[in-house]
Amino acid sequence: MPSAEEWTVVVLSLKVGGVAMMVTLPIAFALAWLLARVRFPGRLLVEAIVYLPLVVPPVVTGWVLLLAFGPAGPIGGPLERWFGISVLFRWTGAAIAAGVMALPLMVRAMRLSIEAVDRRLENAARTLGAGPGRVFWTLTLPLSVPGILAGAVLGFARSIGEFGATITFVSNVPGETRTLPLAIYSMLQQPNGDAMALRLSAISVTLSLAALVASELLARRAGRGFHVL
């Protein structure tokens, strides 16, 4: 059985990953829809910025977040002055770092799903009297659900595995920002920490594996089933 300390780490990781995924979900879907359906100037730039965290070293992403959310930063300054909120050294900051790192993966999965929605069905709905809004809610969105779920699971898995951006942005505070990867790293720095590192690694692998299998099953479901006659 995991110790109390290990439980704290696991529960914190699930909280950070869950919140990161839930908050990022609508943002990722909006971006995915925009990139899949709308041709606008600067589209390539938006796409590049969304996918940037995939290719930039996570430490850099973490540092950029630190600058943005720091007391003198363009987001952190107003947050602190107007609402008295600071995300530094807090689990909320860890969730922000995880969400930013998961965003590109989520956008990619959802975008493929939206692009796979048959436009001919949407045209048929228009001829039946449905305006663009109704077409979105009754066709585009429900038909993209498998991709949305796959993106969410993938985003969640990525979030609970986040390391570089998190440790740079909100440090490694036990009980607050010390998620699974950070705890494993900390254990490896300590003498006699190997056993706990091993147990946490096993939990981490199990969680990631479960998420990947779920994501794959959802993606497969997206592939079949919905066919136009």
């Binding site: 069905l121 001829t127 919905f226 006659l229």
Partner: peptide, 12 residues
């Protein structure tokens, strides 16, 4: 009332 060559029924 447009009936397309493929039925285009909504699969869900």
């Amino acid at each position: 009332g447009y009936v397309f060559q493929e039925a285009r029924l909504f699969p869900h």
